[in-house]
Amino acid sequence: MGFYDLPKNERSLLVQTIDSDILEGFVQKKESIVLNYFSDDDTYIRKTGYLAVGKIHKNKALEIDSLVSFLNQLYLSKLYKVRQTVINAAGELGKTHFEFVEHFFDKALFDEHHSVRNAVIGSIKKMGENNPKPILKWARKYLHHPDKEVRREICHGIELRGRKYPQDILPLLKELQHDTTARVKNTLIHVLGQISYKKGCLETVVKELNTWENKALVEKALDEIVDVHDRYKNFSVLTQKEAITYIDRNFRGKNE
């Protein structure tokens, strides 16, 4: 039976059990206890497992050195679900102490399984939202990596920080404007749309796009931004019509 097949009260009890077991596993360094959850087929069981690691750190039940040491051991698993969960657990620690877990992401960016690489994207998102400075510094190292998938993953990973603070990630995005790979360009356009619809964000994005050299890409990005204001109309601070009006008045390319 899956996590969300259980009644709410039973889910709460299960979370308590997993929290207790994960703590015991890390304290006693018993892989079998932790792997029972880290390898589970149910996504939400695995999620509860890696969130439990974050709770251990937050509650100061174990030193972060001890947590990281055991995660290093677990990451050696041949099971991709275990490695994926380790990366998500490292992401919980990296919200406050990225320097202790940076090496996990250096490895996992190149993991053979896409699920592990996707966990890097998810972790960059949640870490970048809470602890942006070291995360963005790390991301910059891979912006121009020869592997197009690495460039795409980095672009996608920094998106969440940009939804509230587009000014933080726009300098990095600008460096990708001349990337010739379709998957990278499409991700870049997608991210520009995603960081444009909250309060004050459209103004910041349009001002920045006025400085970009790749006008063909910018035009596609502006089309995406307009479309996002319709797709997310229940969440956008401006209507689609208001966004169009603002772009027409403030994007120089519209008036040249």
Score class of each variant (00 low, 15 high):
residue 5 D to I: 00
residue 7 P to M: 05
residue 7 P to E: 08
residue 15 V to G: 11
residue 15 V to W: 06
residue 18 I to K: 00
residue 25 G to I: 13
residue 27 V to I: 09
residue 29 K to C: 05
residue 30 K to E: 08
residue 30 K to Q: 06
residue 31 E to L: 05
residue 38 F to R: 02
residue 40 D to P: 00
residue 41 D to E: 11
residue 41 D to M: 04
residue 46 R to T: 11
residue 50 Y to L: 11
residue 52 A to R: 01
residue 55 K to M: 09
residue 59 N to I: 06
residue 60 K to D: 08
residue 61 A to T: 01
residue 62 L to W: 12
residue 67 L to W: 02
residue 68 V to K: 12
residue 70 F to S: 07
residue 70 F to V: 03
residue 71 L to H: 13
residue 72 N to R: 12
residue 72 N to G: 09
residue 76 L to G: 15
residue 78 K to L: 11
residue 79 L to F: 12
residue 80 Y to C: 12
residue 81 K to R: 10
residue 82 V to A: 06
residue 84 Q to G: 06
residue 89 A to R: 06
residue 98 F to W: 03
residue 99 E to V: 02
residue 108 A to P: 00
residue 115 S to G: 14
residue 117 R to W: 05
residue 117 R to D: 08
residue 118 N to S: 10
residue 131 N to A: 02
residue 134 P to D: 12
residue 135 I to V: 14
residue 135 I to D: 12
residue 135 I to K: 15
residue 142 Y to T: 09
residue 145 H to F: 08
residue 147 D to Y: 07
residue 148 K to P: 08
residue 149 E to H: 15
residue 149 E to G: 10
residue 150 V to R: 05
residue 156 H to S: 11
residue 159 E to A: 03
residue 164 K to E: 13
residue 167 Q to Y: 10
residue 169 I to H: 03
residue 170 L to H: 14
residue 176 L to N: 01
residue 178 H to T: 05
residue 179 D to K: 00
residue 180 T to R: 15
residue 185 K to N: 02
residue 196 S to T: 04
residue 197 Y to N: 08
residue 201 C to V: 01
residue 204 T to P: 13
residue 210 N to P: 00
residue 211 T to R: 10
residue 215 K to P: 02
residue 216 A to G: 01
residue 217 L to P: 00
residue 217 L to W: 03
residue 218 V to S: 00
residue 222 L to H: 00
residue 223 D to I: 03
residue 224 E to G: 00
residue 226 V to M: 04
residue 226 V to A: 03
residue 234 N to M: 13
residue 235 F to T: 03
residue 235 F to R: 10
residue 236 S to T: 08
residue 236 S to I: 01
residue 236 S to H: 02
residue 238 L to E: 09
residue 241 K to D: 14
residue 241 K to N: 06
residue 243 A to Y: 07
residue 244 I to D: 13
residue 246 Y to A: 05
residue 246 Y to H: 04
residue 248 D to Q: 11
residue 249 R to Y: 07
residue 251 F to H: 11
residue 252 R to P: 04
residue 252 R to C: 11
residue 255 N to P: 02
residue 256 E to G: 07
